[in-house]
């Protein structure tokens, strides 16, 4: 096998893999992008930190670099502000695509620590900021009603979901 045909085969394999992933994640709409860059110029994060660039991410998805996106740190810098999605002239649901990519990255174990911690706490307590008796004391002092300090419902919901995915 000469190195040229080897390279060719690797690229073909990458492209097939990218196409498969694109379809499985229902990201086909990225194909209609005509590179106007409205997304990137609307992105408040790109303005602060160019590591995050929505157009670049869409192109990476399209050109077989989806795994690089899923392994990246930059994917998680998206704030889900929807500026890109609202303005895309091709109506590509860019923010929704970022959510799908993040979901996939989370499944692969690539989410930042803070994001994983948020998931764990909600699974356990049903709230991002669990309440305790002290919180309820402060609430009572302010004349606000008492709220539950534990939550079993979330456990049942998550268990039922895990069960159905087996």
């Amino acid at each position: 096998m000469n190195s040229e045909s080897g390279k060719h085969r690797v690229r073909a394999k990458l492209e097939t893999r990218a196409q498969e992933l694109t379809e499985r994640l229902e990201l086909q709409s990225v194909r209609s992008c005509y590179i106007c860059r409205t997304c990137t110029s609307s992105c408040p994060v790109t303005f602060i930190d160019p590591r995050f660039n929505p157009l670049a991410i869409l192109r990476m998805v399209l050109y077989g670099k989806i795994e690089e996106v899923l392994n990246s740190d930059f994917l998680w810098l998206c704030t889900s502000c929807y500026s890109c999605q609202e303005r895309c002239p091709q109506e590509i649901p860019i923010a929704d695509i970022m959510t799908k990519l993040k979901n996939k990255a989370f499944k692969l174990g690539n989410a930042p620590v803070g994001v994983r911690a948020q998931m764990d706490i909600i699974k356990k307590a049903g709230r991002t900021y669990p309440l305790d008796d002290f919180d309820n004391k402060k609430r009572a002092k302010a004349g606000l009603p008492e709220l539950p300090t534990s939550c079993d419902v979330v456990k049942t919901l998550f268990e039922s979901e895990t069960e159905s995915l087996k």
Binding site: W76, Q118, G126
Partner: peptide, 25 residues
């Protein structure tokens, strides 16, 4: 309504279906 739980938004990026279940509840 005392039984309300998290709306799901904070975990939408991690697991959209779980987030939607919380909202639906």
């Amino acid at each position: 309504v005392e039984r309300f739980v998290c709306c799901g938004f904070p975990i939408k990026s991690s697991k959209q279906f779980s987030a939607e279940l919380l909202s639906a509840y």
